[in-house]
Structure formats: C-alpha cells, structure tokens
Design a protein around this nucleic acid. Structure first.
Lengths: 352, 352
DNA sequence: CATTTTTGCACAATCGATGGTGCAATGAAT
DNA sequence: ATTCATTGCACCATCGATTGTGCAAAAATG
C-alpha cells in the first residue's frame, strides 16, 4: 500500500483558495447558500475548487455542530437468516433513497447488548432507529428516550414506542389451515398429529400459537397442550426437540408448524441424522420464508412476512412528529410449496 | 412517545458538578488519567458522578478531535444471502470482541456506489475497512488511500491492497470432482452433460471455471466452451439460462456446477416452473453453502468457504503496520449432500 | 443628490472532547 | 530554612463544520 495521505481538504483550505470566508464555503457546499444570498459566481467558484480538491465534508464535525449525523440505524437480532438479511436489504434501499446512510448492527437477542449497542449509536447521533425483533424493546426505548432518538419497533412490538409487526395471529391461522388442508381426505390429519415447534415467550410466538390453536379447534375439534414445543430461537434446541420426539414416538408428527426459519434449521439437522424415508408423509409449515426451504423433498408451506411493507410503514411513522404508541399489523402472505419469490435483490441491476 | 430529552451530560456538566476542570473529567473518563497524575479519589468522584448522570461520551466530538471513530466497516455487495450474511455475523463478533463498533453496509455490486459508500464511511473516520466481494476493489482502494484508511479485500481480490480470498481453483476442482464421482459407473456422466452456470468476469468466477475445466479434462478427457454459461450474479439471469437450455435440449444437464447460491436461486425459479420429475437424475454442485439448499430433492454438493478463517486473516493483516500487497488463499470445504453445518449463530446463547 | 433597501458576505461563537503546557502546593533532601 | 522534585490539576488551543448577527457596498427610490 503506497501511502499518500494528503490530508483531506477542509472548508478552511477552500476558504483560503477561494478568498471567501469559511462560512461562505460551508454554506455553498451544504446547500444553504441561496438562503445566505451568496452570489452565483462565488458559489460556482467554490464548488469548482471543492471538486478539484476532492473536498468531502467531515461528517463528524458536521454532526457535532448540528447534533445530527445523517445516519439511520437498524438494530437486528442476527444477520444470518433470510428474514433479517432481507430486512437489512430493504432497509438500506429505503435509507439510501432518502439520501442518508444506513447502518445495520446486530445485538444477538441479548437485552444488555441491545441497550449497549443503541447507546453507541446514540453517541454517533444517529437520526433515527428501527428496532427489529428486539428481545427487550422497552429497554431500548428507555435508552432512546433519554436522548430524544426517534425509533420504531418492527417485528416484535414494545409497549412504549410505535410498533409495526406482521399479523402473526392471522398468519398462523392461514398457515395452520394450509397445513391441515394439504392432507387429502383419506390421509386426514388428526389433532394429535399436528405440532408446533420453536419460538419462545415473545409476542410473535404467543400470537402464532394462539392462531395455531384456534384453527386446530375450529377445523379439528381438538387441541392439546402437548402439541406445542417452544424451543427458543436456536437450531440446536429445535433439533433436540425433534430428536426427543422421534425417540419417543418413532416418527415425526405428520403436520409440523415451525415457528421460524431458524428453528427450521433444527429440522435440517435432524434430517441429516435420518434417511429421507422419515419425511415421506410430513407436511411442514414454516413461519418465515426461505427460497431454498420451499423446495425441500416434502411439502413446505411458508409464510412470507411483508418486509417491504413493514419498513415502509415504519418510516412513515417516524416521519410523523408525534406518532401515537400503537401497534400496526401488516398482513403476511401464504406461500405454497415449491415457490420462488422475488426478493429485494431483484431490484438490483446486475451488470452481467 | 413521552419526551424527556434531558440533553445528555457532557464533560462540562460533570466538570461543574465535580469542581474539576473539563480536561480532568475527560482524562478520567477516557482512561488516560493515570498518565495525567489524577488523584485516585478525584477519579473516583468523577466516575461516580458520571454514572449517576449516565454520562456517555459524544463520539462525534471525540472522533473529530482524535480523527478516529472506533468504527470498523464491512462493505458487502448484498446482505440477502447466507454467504454474506454469515460474513456480517462473523465480522460483528470479531469487531465487538475488540471493543469497537461494527458497521455493515452494502453497495449492490455497483462500482460507483462502492466508492460513494466508502467516501461516506471515511467521512465518519472509520478506523478500518473490510471490502468484501467488491466489483471494483481497486477503485475503492484509491478512495481509501486518499485518506490513509486501512483496508483489506476479502472474497474478491484487488491488485493494490492485501486480499484474502478462498481458494476458488481448488474449491472448484473438489466440487467438480465430487459431482462427477457422485454418478455411479453405469450412469456415468459425459463431458457434455456437465455444465457450469453463473458468475461473471471476476477473479472468483475465472478461477472456478479454470478449476472446473481442469478437472473435466483430467477425469472426463473432454471439455468444451459451450459448457460454461456465465449469467452474472442474479437469480433472474440464471433462471433464463436454465429455461433456454431446457427448451433447447428438453432437459437440464445431469451435472450442474452452479457458481453461487444466488445463481442457485435461479434454478429454484426454474424448478417452480417444472415438475420434480425434471430433476430426478441431476446432481448439483454449488459454490457456496446454504443449509436449506443442502437438502433439496436431488443431491446437492456444496462448497463452504471458510468465512471465519478469512475474517480472522483479514484482521491479522490489518494489524500489521505495512502489510504487503498479496493475495492469501483460504481453503474452502466440500460439503456432501444433506449436511447441516453449524454457523456463526451457534455461537450465540439463546435464552429459550 | 440623499436616503432607504437590498445584496453579498465576513465574523465569531459553538458543538464536546483531547492533549500539550504551565504552575501552585506538597513533600523530600540538604 | 532553602532548594528541588514530585504531585495534582487547570488552562487553552484544536478538530471542521454550522449559524446568528452585523456591516459595507451596490442598487433602488424619492
């Protein structure tokens, strides 16, 4: 790496070069110059100098003075699954289109880490924040309020800030019904053959369980507590749950409602230990969409949450000056087996 | 949202409260106080005040003064696939463990956007940058050098900065060989039945193609140009390529080398249009690992790149003071069909 | 030509933290 | 009792931009 760290030009450098004052240069370069009645020709001169010297504003200085930063944050639980990575992708596009700079961070579902991370973002004066799938949204809220940071919860609601979430109850109803109806009449599923795996004690899981049970009672006239196995959001715990079930019963339930694609990965781990024959007659419904998951060797019905819709709504809310603390439900979509949906990447031109 | 934007406490506030000077407060709170011979008791007092008032440093101010920020950047092409989202996940863990703040941004494979984004990061005085899969690494390099920003390429190499990439040639050889050997003797694959789809004119694609062809010649005594179909990194283009092939030949090649999981999604889209029977006898090798992809209804052999290894190496290089401009190869791993590997998420404790 | 208005810009304070320098008070040494 | 070293901290310039204010020169008005 050959170095040539010619320090970056500042407004003071341009001020000297142009013969104008720093404030004039500043005004010209940040667009407020008309308001300050700077002559067109002066502006032109300065702009010219600026890009001849590759001037770019020091955003820390600007941020310090104006206590805004042009940064918009997205706090994720984790990066590594298609739901949240799609969210990051949509988020970035939105923020970019508003001329701001997106920054995405994850906090591993750790309430402590969530708060620390947001503290850090605040120290950089991020202008707005979307809090996605936080384990402790109200804790994050407390931190935000302390510094007047605008924020909206998404995916998991909080009780103190506006929230945009998908309609988990409806979604779970659709998904459960689709699983049941996927079985033909002669192989009809019994209430004890339809299980829900995954999730924990959060709002989304509770709603999904509620929807699941409601439909079971409506369509199957039966539902028992033992058909629910929360495993947390970890592939490993889910795998263990599947293994235990299999050991106990000698087979998996024919109907499986899986709470998230992360838990679905637990089923994959289970699959790796067992021959495909063990999955011949099962039907899986997964609350989350993953394109590869949709084409597995058994029917996989998925719910795709309307990420784009949620993000859009979240930004709308943040644009209001005194948003009301309420939870907005966004309708998700049922995805039949073997479906390859387009995603945020399709918006990107690829120069083959 | 009830507001209570009690503006954040500054060292000046604490200075008044403690009766010490701002510089003393600053020194105490940033850890340089022993060097400045501050009395233990003074320090204690100030620390006490600081957390009673929930002081947190204004990092923009600190960054402005010290022209460093504590930020470490990762520039990705896109978020939305398991390869890059795993990378983001590993990256975050690394940066966090060093007490810095990770920020992940994507630039959509657009050279212009890549440079602009890095400009922005520089304006925030990011301390270091990992440039992953950049379309124009040398363009990014030019921007970085202008401000002395330490950076390392990863995934795709540049010619002006150190690069860490996976050994695409070896990986492609392993993968191609695995595909060929997956066919039994009586159903042996012919050279004209093994195609490579996807990729574009970048270093990784070229190396993979080179490895692919080398093995074809060694093992099959044959290889022709028509067996290579670069489609860019887009699901859509790949789908179109598969459709065209299918129309022309009435079937897909029995052996498919797919350049990336993104292109693999193109095959999914194709699959959605055709019955499973069209895939009965195919074997897919995909250069990239996706847990769900590994369990599709036909054999899928995958290459998992050693993301953790690449990130680790990249940080090692950035720690050197005058790293040499060379390309380090990291060995990837062959993943047999129906394999569920652990990923960065498994490092995260889940409070079920 | 005298006065008012408008134009065009410079000045200087400010945002919050950092770090070099200088100086008084205290203790040690002679 | 002096002198010297050490301790403990305050002072102030600085990083690069923003923004309210003030004031000369030019233009418009009577």
């Amino acid at each position: 790496m050959e170095h040539q760290p010619k320090k970056k030009a500042t407004i003071y450098d341009l001020s000297v070069l142009s013969g104008s004052s720093p404030s004039t240069v500043s005004a010209v370069l940040n667009g407020t110059w008309r308001k300050r009645r700077i002559k067109e020709s002066t502006a032109e001169l300065i702009r010219d100098l600026a890009d001849r010297h590759q001037y770019t504003a020091n955003l820390q200085a600007r941020g310090l003075r104006s206590s805004r930063s042009g940064l918009v944050g997205l706090l994720l639980p984790v990066h590594d699954n298609r739901y949240f990575s799609s969210m990051a992708q949509s988020f970035e596009a939105h923020v970019r289109s508003r001329g701001q700079c997106p920054i995405v961070v994850s906090a591993c579902r750790d309430p402590e880490e969530e708060r620390r991370t947001v503290e850090t973002l605040i120290s950089y004066s991020v202008d707005e924040l979307i809090v996605a799938g936080a384990t402790d949204p109200d804790g994050v809220h407390a931190v935000c309020i302390g510094s007047g940071l605008k924020h909206v919860n998404i995916d998991l609601p909080g009780s103190k800030a506006p929230s945009v979430i998908s309609d988990n109850y409806q979604g779970a109803r659709m998904l459960t019904e689709a699983i049941i109806r996927h079985f033909s009449d002669d192989l009809k599923l019994g209430p004890d053959e339809l299980y829900l795996f995954g999730g924990r004690d959060d709002h989304a899981s509770r709603e999904r369980i509620r929807g699941f049970r409601a439909i079971k009672r409506e369509l199957m006239q039966g539902d028992s507590d033992k058909c629910i196995e929360p495993t947390g959001y970890s592939p490993n715990m889910a795998q263990i749950a599947f293994e235990r079930f299999y050991e106990r019963e000698g087979k998996l339930p024919r109907g499986l409602f899986i709470n998230s694609s992360i838990n679905f990965e637990g089923l994959l781990r289970f699959m790796a230990q067992h021959p495909n024959e063990a999955f011949l007659d099962i039907v899986v419904g997964c609350y989350d969409y993953d394109p590869f998951g949709s084409f597995l060797p058994f029917p996989v019905i998925m719910i795709r949450q309307d990420i784009e819709g949620m993000i859009t709504k979240a930004f709308e809310i943040m644009a209001e000056n005194r948003p009301s603390v309420q939870t907005y439900l966004i309708q998700p979509e049922l995805v039949p087996p073997r479906t390859a949906l387009k995603g945020p990447l399709d918006a990107i031109k690829d120069i083959a």
